[in-house]
Simulated scan of single mutants.
Amino acid sequence: MEELILSFIEFLKQFSYFGLIIALTFEFVPAELVLPLAGFWVYEGDMNYWLAVFAGTLGGTLGPLTLYALGRYGGRPFLIKYGKYVFIKEREINAADRFFEKYGAGVAFFGRFLPGVRTTISVPCGMAKMNVWVFSIYTFIAMFPITAFYIYLGKQFGPQWKDVGAKAEEYMLPVAGIIVTAILLFFVFKKARKWTSV
């Protein structure tokens, strides 16, 4: 199956950055496979790093919107019945449901950093009829550092880009922690400046 997906991604390479966006729009194509390969293309000089990151982030935002729409308009019974055809298992939907119930709308951001719920977290967001713009913004903000990280590792690993997946998972939660801390510090600093200017 992986070889078939790789052939599909290689076919889309002819469309350059647009091909990268298209590849990530299909949720059955793992970003963990596409992005390190894009990093390898950067390594080979076929793509610019930052343009690849932007295209990857855009594709990584459009893809979850399809699952969001399935959750919003198809509902849980539809996904349980037909999800298997796009590699979505019922246990993954259940895990995403529990995560959404526990953490609310913020999962559209935080869920992207967690293996097991990363893809399916879009489904409960849709079923809960979360505002589509809020969902898209949270997803884009989360996907930018993830995309940059995977493409960077693919570039660094070069011809061994296939080894990126296992290595990236080790660092994903710490990366999420750093991002969340930075966001919190930004808002605290902004609030502190507002108080001092009064």
Rank of each mutant, 00 (worst) to 15 (best):
L4N: 13
I5S: 02
S7V: 02
I9F: 06
L12N: 00
L12A: 07
Q14F: 13
F15Y: 15
I21Y: 07
A23F: 03
A23P: 04
T25Q: 06
P30R: 02
G39R: 08
W41E: 06
W41I: 00
E44M: 13
D46Q: 13
M47I: 07
N48I: 13
Y49G: 04
Y49V: 00
W50T: 08
W50R: 10
L51S: 05
A52P: 04
F54C: 11
G56A: 01
L58S: 03
G59F: 00
T61K: 08
G63N: 05
L65R: 00
A69K: 00
Y73E: 05
G74T: 01
R76H: 11
F78L: 10
K81G: 03
Y82Q: 08
G83W: 07
E92K: 08
A95V: 04
A95N: 12
R98I: 12
G104A: 04
G106T: 07
F113Y: 15
P115D: 03
G116D: 03
R118M: 09
I121D: 00
I121H: 01
C125Q: 13
G126M: 01
A128Q: 10
N131W: 08
N131C: 06
S136V: 05
I137Y: 01
A142V: 01
P145Y: 00
T147W: 02
F149W: 10
I151K: 07
Y152G: 11
K162P: 07
K162V: 12
K167R: 11
A168G: 00
L173T: 09
V175E: 08
V175I: 15
I178Y: 09
L184V: 14
K191F: 14
A192C: 08
A192I: 14
R193W: 11
W195G: 05
